[in-house]
């Protein structure tokens, strides 16, 4: 085994993963809860990365999908007592269907217009939640008394025992990373990257750009909806304030600062943006100021983010001669 760049990189990833998994053993409940928040935002960042990173669509309303997933879980769990984790797929589906409906008319909009429309969308959703739409969202106070998820009959309480919740979130995060990695390096992932790079050339090469844009929104929303489920189960009460425009901005920053289109980049982004301020408690009030400066500086000096995506290598050498035919 040689110490090529790739091996070193994989070694670092493995070390980080081991540290991550072992961390709760050494950390206080509060500190573990910070890791849980990082995991939630990493998941949200990864789901936004499908739309913003691969697809290049400037979507700043991701908190809306997150909210719809969380509210789906909260409403059904508190009204009908269906266990939280059973609602995981349903929360994703509700958010995905919502994305299908709202994204269809707006996906053809140019980048900056799309940005502003998605801001409008997330604000409308928040206002709808505050105004207790359909009489089921609980208005500005939100919904209390959501049950904790149960795994094999054991309730996992995110507040009392964040260490247990940590492993639930980590398992889902690992699953998400694996699945999104495969997605990134597939026909589907390439299609999104093509349309991000040049949508006219992509369409001209035979790629259904509108269809892919829409499906990216649906997959991203589906995943954000599932994260909403895990979030609702973690804190057991939700209110519209948890899903404001600023939440969308935080997700957006995680992807852009970390590295749009790069899974390690997004993970690093979540660690930096959610985790770092915890180490500098006394600087807490300067947090957003520093992020704002970082956004400007990154665009000027390193627009591709801290860890931009690495080019994918294809098994060109492993092909038989007879496979290389017209």
């Amino acid at each position: 085994m040689s110490f090529s760049g790739k091996n070193i990189r994989n070694g670092i990833y493995a070390a980080v993963a081991v540290c991550w998994i072992a961390a709760p053993v050494f950390l206080s409940n509060y500190q573990t809860d910070v890791l849980n928040n990082i995991a939630i935002y990493a998941l949200l960042g990864l789901s936004l990365n499908i739309i913003l990173g691969y697809g290049g669509m400037f979507h700043m309303g991701h908190a809306a999908f997150f909210a719809i997933g969380a509210y789906t879980t909260a409403i059904i769990n508190t009204s009908y007592g269906i266990p939280v984790l059973w609602l995981l797929p349903l929360s994703g589906i509700t958010a995905g269907v919502f994305a299908l409906v709202v994204a269809r008319p707006i996906i053809h909009l140019r980048g900056d217009y799309l940005l502003i429309v998605t801001i409008g969308m997330v604000e409308i959703v928040r206002i709808a939640l505050v105004n207790n739409i359909f009489g089921i969202t609980g208005g500005p106070n939100g919904i209390f008394g959501i049950a904790s998820p149960q795994v094999f009959g054991h309730p996992i309480n995110g507040i009392v025992s964040p260490g247990h919740y940590f492993y639930l979130l980590t398992a889902f995060l690992a699953f998400t990373i694996a699945v999104f990695y495969l997605l990134e390096h597939s026909r589907y992932g390439r299609a999104l990257k093509y349309l991000c790079s040049d949508s006219i050339a992509a369409e001209g090469s035979g790629i259904d750009t509108s269809g892919y844009k829409l499906s990216a929104f649906v997959i991203g929303a589906f995943w954000a909806g599932m994260v909403g489920n895990l979030y609702a189960g973690k804190i057991t009460f939700i209110s519209p304030e948890s899903f404001s425009f600023w939440e969308s901005v935080v997700m957006f920053m995680i992807v852009i600062l970390g590295g749009a289109g790069s899974i390690p980049g997004v993970l690093l982004g979540a660690i930096l943006i959610i985790g770092l301020p915890e180490f500098f408690q006394e600087l807490q009030q300067y947090r957003l100021l520093i992020f704002g400066i970082a956004l400007v500086a990154m665009m000027i000096f390193r627009p591709q983010g801290i860890l931009p995506p690495k080019p994918h290598t294809y098994p060109v050498d492993k092909l038989d001669e007879k496979e290389v035919t017209l």
Partner: peptide
């Protein structure tokens, strides 16, 4: 790219309001 400037604008907005 135009969208870099949009992100920078967003950053500037955060800086100002804070």
């Amino acid at each position: 790219p135009r969208l870099s400037a949009v992100v920078s604008a967003l950053g500037a907005s955060i800086v100002f309001s804070n």
